[in-house]
């Protein structure tokens, strides 16, 4: 299983020298096993995926964690959406009273976007998922709702005995005492536990988080604490705040590693990253 990071940024895309090391595109990760490919989220990073990845089958499967703009903005400009030769399957959460299609159409319609969803020439099928366990080709997938603004999923993708857990937007605890309540009471723990790689929201410093509690994101230290509780083997910090430069991200990582002595490797996710799990 190979994991390629195509977009790491949270909230909105950034560009320029200060985002050149870790990337400025919003959330998108590709997981592949042989010729089978899963795309996680459709942020602007999806536009960096090499077209040859799909040309062989002309079939694309996209799993959306939620429908905030930084996770779907790239879909409108994703070339296969405009190619009638492509079959595109989009899996994601429905709303409380609205379908996945209705929620996607809000973006794919004027004035937000010039092209109506119904006019996209590719063959698109939407599949609503929630707290589910299913398989897609070689991938075993477990999804569950996690704490964020609006219906939001985390995914665990496994091939054989290797797994990656994807939590781009997550606020594991809103009340600090909950950490003591045990794993059963921590949002998303069933998805993350024991993963070989955990890709997790780490948008803020602890000081920044204090002013943004309830916004649906977390501090780097909470990400480390969640990862330690989940007993993961490696943590990739993700959803970098657009206001944080490459240099600042590295300072933050050094600070949190000093503050929290964890036994597993912790890295900043970068758009150039490729990880192999065999």
């Amino acid at each position: 299983m190979e994991i390629r990071i195509y977009g790491t940024r949270g909230s909105y895309a950034v560009s320029g020298d200060t985002a050149s090391r870790y990337g400025g595109n919003t959330a998108c990760v590709v997981i592949s096993e042989g010729n089978d490919v899963l795309v996680l989220d459709g942020g602007t990073g999806i536009l960096r995926i090499p077209p040859e990845l799909f040309k062989r089958s002309h079939k694309i499967t996209i799993l959306l964690t939620h429908l905030h703009l930084d996770h779907i903005q790239g879909l409108g400009f994703f070339k296969p959406m405009y190619n009638p030769a492509y079959d595109i399957h989009i899996l994601g959460p429905a709303g409380y009273n609205t379908t996945l299609k209705d929620r996607l159409i809000r973006y794919f319609s004027p004035p937000l976007f010039p092209v109506h969803f119904r006019d996209l020439p590719s063959r698109i099928q939407l599949h609503e998922i929630g707290h589910d366990t299913f398989a897609l080709g070689p991938f075993r997938i477990h999804s569950n709702f996690i704490c964020h603004q609006g219906p939001t999923l985390a995914f665990r993708v496994a091939v054989g005995n290797k797994s990656v857990a994807y939590f781009p937007d997550h606020e594991p605890v809103l009340v600090s005492d909950i950490w003591e309540a045990g794993k059963e009471w921590i949002s998303g723990m069933d998805v993350a536990e024991g993963a070989d790689i955990l890709i997790h929201d780490a948008q803020y410093t602890s000081a920044e988080y204090e002013k943004r509690q309830g916004w649906g994101h977390c501090s780097q230290s909470d990400a480390l604490r969640f990862a330690a509780m989940a007993d993961v083997k490696k943590l990739l910090l993700f959803h970098h705040d657009p206001d944080h430069t490459d240099e600042r991200l590295e300072e933050m990582l050094a600070e949190v590693k000093k503050e929290m002595n964890v036994s597993f490797p912790v890295e900043l996710a970068s758009e150039r990253d490729i990880y192999s799990l065999d």
């Binding site: 366990t133 398989a135 897609l136 075993r140 477990h142 059963e184 723990m189 069933d190 536990e193």
Partner: peptide, 19 residues
């Protein structure tokens, strides 16, 4: 037709309460 879902026996290592 791309990647048909199949039933997967429980791969979950632990249970959490509903969100």
């Amino acid at each position: 037709p791309l990647l048909p879902y199949t039933f997967v026996t429980n791969p979950i290592r632990m249970a959490t309460q509903e969100l």
